[in-house]
Nucleic acid binder design. Structure first.
Length: 798
DNA sequence: ATCTATCGGGG
DNA sequence: GTGTACGATAGAT
């Protein structure tokens, strides 16, 4: 009876029905029909770790005494399982309702002879995925029976009988092929700058479907967004997307929509089972039943190459939407563009550009996200919201389960510090033609080579271990007799990645097969590279501070020896940080270093990039370089943040560009003088002089006097309501007293009121000197002397 | 010199 | 976990 169904697992949830949990797997079949598969015989369980000489019979009897009627204890099984490499006696307790596990954990832990409760902190859905060895985004086969009465918003509902096995035919099929993706973005009315969902309506929602060329823009009617929200919900129901993407929607769009919907009494049924509002879930993400809500900002956070990760910047950087080809509106001008009917079409185009950027980013990022799900076992809506340590831990839990190892509990610990990587003092100044050598996966390689892990670390004397590795400096020891848990996992990753890279060779670069394999090997690399940080993370189940300390010690040793060798053959070393070396780009000598590292030390180092021109300051982790393709890397010059004026941000990036492109800091000095002149001549608009700061608490609760609290008070006197979370925009005007006393709401003053000296001394000069200071240029030089007008046009800024 | 407050995304 | 933690910096005192 029944039939075999091949399905792709997208998401999992469960519900309680007749006092029993029912697992629901959300996915689609080979005909691209959306399916829900239920599994009703799975029950929650956990383990009791017993004392060596505990009286098992007696313990079992008292366990049953604690059984509660609302969730009876269904079974107690006596087992011997490995715990951190050593066999232990445990009792497996099976119960009925997942939520009762927490309570049983408390009560049963008090029984005499029970040393610890294990695996009681694993969520029920994850427990199921772990036990059945299921990875979201992969394809499986199961024997199923159709269920006629289908209350879900899917094509078919089935009940699973028996086993679920991976569908080998689908392993190399693009997991996103045929899935419906919907991007959305809301615009909010914000006349008081910081929108308040209890007051300010949503004015536009832009939506773009992956298979359609043009976005749909829903608009509010005046200041009434009730029909807009209703239409949005209807549109989701109609288009029925599998994946919903946005940019920072977990922190902004969803919470805002939820508040607005609540205010209007609208049910936000956007999932595949009613009622199904977006639900706050793990890792700060909103989960939507039956769909994957993926926040693309989580992917952007991984781009270390760019400092500002706004939708506009990220889309520009990745070539999804060039900054100069889109409508740019300052966030604080949104309401003005809505109220002015002349300007409203521009706002509409802005909103469309946003959602087009969002879907563009989805095409760039999701193939990687899908592979990360396939490798880590976390659903795609969670995997990117989770930190790298959680992603690795998800995989480690599966590896432990496969080996029959008990998982350590997550416990609260104090963070203990230890010495990190080597950071050399840079050679300040401008250097031409500099190569960056990177150790390939330095820390994972160390872990494999020296069998580092929580189950191989030797506390005290070595006992009967024959093959001991001792880390330099820190004196941590590891037993090398049998491969430990971490080493086994890492070796599996390494072998897997090698095999994938081998297979990639048989495909043309850029083909879909090649891209799929490439994203998969990247996902494996990300998990492998998280392993060191994971061991040093106090909240980790397999936390091992001694391991982390030993890994960095071996790393320091490696890089020091490489530096010494490079210098011994006459290669100039400009800078080095943890696992990278900046050296003069002398190909022959670099090859010798590469050979030395691979032959003498058995590690791999390779050229990561070559800078045509680079400048270091004497500060560590701070440099800017010009790559051969004209791109510029700016690392560590972080003054230009959101709480600086536009003007100072502009000055700083222009200076880095001028210095790197011309190699002459003097030309940047001329540029700064131009800017100062323009400011004095009132040629710079007030918009560029606004400084924005957020009120984090009630004004009365501030101990210190600050510009933005003073301005908030002024605004309050003017009749504005200011509250925590509001962004206060201010400018500094001429007059006596402290800066705070001279701060005014930007919309209350004219350009002639502006205190140019403040902007020169506190905004332009510090931003400029952050870079130019390292070339011996002083404040005085920037403020005096002649200027050459032509230079201001270098970057055409105004 | 010390203390308090803010940045990161979104609108 | 119904997300922090972190390192850097400005301004007041």
């Amino acid at each position: 009876m029944g039939k075999e169904l091949s399905f792709q697992l997208l998401d999992i949830s469960y519900e309680i029905s007749n006092n029993k949990p029912i697992i629901m797997l959300w996915g689609r079949d080979r005909y691209n029909k959306r399916v829900t598969l239920t599994y009703s015989s799975f029950r929650p369980y956990f383990y009791l770790l017993l004392d060596e000489k505990a009286d098992e019979e007696k313990i079992i009897k008292s366990i049953y005494k604690y059984s509660k009627q609302k969730s009876p204890i269904l079974g107690v099984e006596s087992l011997t399982l490995n715990y951190l490499g050593k066999p232990k006696k445990v009792l497996k307790i099976t119960t009925t309702i997942p939520e009762s596990v927490r309570e049983y954990r408390e009560t049963l832990s008090r029984i005499e002879g029970v040393k610890d409760v294990l695996e009681a902190d694993i969520r029920f859905s994850m427990r199921f995925l772990l036990d059945k060895n299921l990875y979201p985004m992969r394809w499986y086969k199961a024997n199923v029976n159709p269920i006629d009465k289908n209350p879900f918003i899917v094509d078919e509902l089935y009940e699973i009988n028996g086993d679920i096995v991976e569908d080998q035919e689908m392993v190399n099929v693009n997991p996103l092929e045929g899935l419906r993706i919907m991007a959305f973005d809301i615009e909010v009315y914000n006349p008081r700058r910081t929108p308040d969902p209890s007051r300010d309506p949503i004015i536009m929602i832009s939506i773009r479907h992956s298979n359609e060329k043009d976005p749909i823009v829903l608009e509010a009617i005046g200041h009434d967004d009730s029909s807009l929200i209703q239409e949005f919900v209807e549109l989701i129901k109609k288009e029925d997307p599998d994946i919903i993407v946005g940019y920072n929607q977990n922190k902004f769009d969803w919470p805002y929509l939820i508040e607005r919907a609540k205010k209007h009494g609208i049910r936000l049924d956007v999932g595949r089972k009613n009622p199904s509002p977006p639900n706050m879930s793990v890792f700060g993400h909103y989960s939507i039943q039956g769909r994957l809500n993926v926040d693309l900002y989580d992917f952007a956070e991984e781009l270390q190459e760019i400092k500002f990760k706004s939708l506009v910047e990220v889309s520009d950087y990745l070539g999804v939407m060039p900054k100069d080809k889109r409508v740019n509106i300052e966030w604080w001008q949104i309401s003005e563009y809505w109220d002015d009917l002349q300007k409203r079409p521009t706002l509409k185009r802005y909103s469309m550009d946003d959602v087009n950027s969002t879907i563009g980013l989805a095409f760039k990022f999701l193939p990687f996200g899908a592979q990360l799900s396939i490798i880590s076992g976390l659903p795609m809506d969670q995997v990117m919201a989770a930190s790298v340590a959680f992603r690795l831990e998800a995989r480690l839990m599966r590896e432990a389960k496969k080996k029959g190892e008990l998982m350590p509990n997550r416990t609260e610990r104090q963070t203990e510090t230890y010495v990190g990587g080597v950071v050399l003092k840079p050679h300040p100044g401008i250097h031409e033609n500099v190569a960056v050598l990177d150790f390939a996966s330095m820390y994972p390689s160390i872990m494999v080579k020296y069998n580092v892990g929580p189950d191989t670390i030797i506390e005290g004397e070595g006992g009967d271990c024959k093959n001991i590795y001792t880390a330099p400096e820190v004196n941590q020891k590891f037993c090398g007799d049998t491969p430990g848990f971490m080493k086994q996992v890492l070796q599996r990753f390494l072998r897997w990645r090698k095999e994938i890279k081998e297979r990639m060779k048989s495909y043309e670069e850029g083909t879909s097969e090649y891209n799929l394999l490439n994203e998969r090997q990247r996902a494996i690399k990300v998990l492998a590279n998280a392993s060191y940080g994971y061991l040093g993370w106090a909240a980790a189940r397999w936390y091992c501070r001694g391991c982390a300390e030993a890994i960095t010690a071996w790393g320091r040793d490696l890089i020091r020896r490489s530096i010494a060798y490079a210098k011994s053959i006459g290669l100039k070393v400009y800078y080095g940080d943890t696992d990278s070396l900046f050296v003069s780009n002398d190909e022959q000598k670099i090859q010798k270093v590469i050979d030395f590292v691979s032959k003498e030390m058995e590690f791999e180092i390779k050229i990561d990039k070559v800078y045509k021109r680079i400048f270091f300051t004497e500060a560590k982790k701070r440099y800017a370089g010009l790559l051969s393709d004209g791109r510029i890397d700016i690392v560590g010059f972080e003054a230009a943040r959101g709480d600086w004026s536009e003007l100072s941000k502009e000055v700083q990036t222009s200076i880095a560009k001028i210095v790197l492109r011309t190699g002459d800091p003097k030309r940047a000095v001329e540029y700064v003088k131009e800017v100062i002149d323009n400011l004095k001549n009132r040629k710079i608009g007030i918009d560029k002089l606004i400084v924005w700061k957020t009120l984090t608490k009630d004004i009365s609760k501030y101990e210190a006097e600050t510009p933005h609290t003073n301005v908030a008070k002024i605004m309050e006197r003017m009749g504005y309501k200011v509250s925590p979370g509001n962004k206060i925009g201010y400018v500094i005007i001429k007059g006596p007293g402290s800066i705070s006393k001279k701060a005014r709401p930007y919309f209350t003053v004219g350009i002639s009121d502006i205190d140019d000296n403040y902007y020169i001394d506190k905004q332009i000069i510090p931003a400029a000197l952050r870079i130019l200071g390292y070339f011996g240029i002083t404040e005085k030089e920037l403020k005096t002397g002649t200027r050459q007008p032509s230079l201001f046009d270098f970057f055409g800024s105004s």
